[in-house]
Simulated scan of single mutants.
Amino acid sequence: MRVIRHIAVVIILLAGICTILSLRLVRSGRDGSPHPAESMGAVLAPSVQPPMLVVDSLRVGGAAEQAGLRVGDLIETVDGDSVPSLAAADQALAGRGPLDIHVRRGKDEVDISIVTDKDRPRE
């Protein structure tokens, strides 16, 4: 009976590990690199006010937070191009160099320049 319990525990642990790995692959690019928005330290989500995206969360100390992006900001453009979907944002954010992002924050419009983590010099 103990052997069966041990086998069951091992199977459950393996299933959990497989789930974690598969989620990591879904969130990352095909080559295992971080999702483009993650390189600036932000998670984006579709907005209830299409065709824009909303900043859903920020990594503490990440490039987006340091540049002044805030949770709830509505992203209108990245480098002058509209980002009506997550796929469009991925494409726009995959570029190199500083990102010029135009956001709507309440009634205000704000321009933010973000140097992504991948573009920061290595120390």
Rank of each mutant, 00 (worst) to 15 (best):
M1D: 15
I4S: 13
R5D: 02
I7Q: 07
I7V: 11
A8F: 09
V10R: 03
L13W: 08
L14Q: 09
C18K: 08
T19L: 13
I20V: 14
L21E: 02
S22V: 05
L23A: 03
R24E: 11
L25E: 08
V26M: 07
S28F: 08
G29H: 12
D31Q: 14
H35T: 05
H35C: 05
P36N: 01
P36Y: 00
A37G: 14
S39Y: 07
M40G: 07
A42S: 14
V43D: 08
Q49W: 00
P51T: 10
M52Q: 08
L53Y: 00
V54K: 02
L58I: 00
L58P: 02
R59I: 14
V60S: 13
A63T: 02
A63K: 01
A64N: 01
Q66P: 04
G68V: 03
D73W: 03
L74M: 13
I75R: 00
E76D: 04
E76K: 05
E76F: 01
D79R: 02
D79I: 00
G80H: 02
D81P: 01
D81L: 05
V83D: 11
S85K: 02
L86C: 08
L86P: 10
L86G: 11
A87I: 07
A87C: 00
A88R: 08
Q91A: 15
A92P: 09
L93C: 04
A94E: 13
A94C: 10
A94L: 12
G95C: 04
P98A: 13
P98T: 10
L99A: 12
D100G: 08
I101N: 07
H102T: 14
H102W: 05
R104M: 10
G106A: 02
D108T: 10
D108F: 07
I112N: 07
S113Q: 14
S113P: 09
D117G: 15
K118Q: 06
D119I: 00
P121T: 08
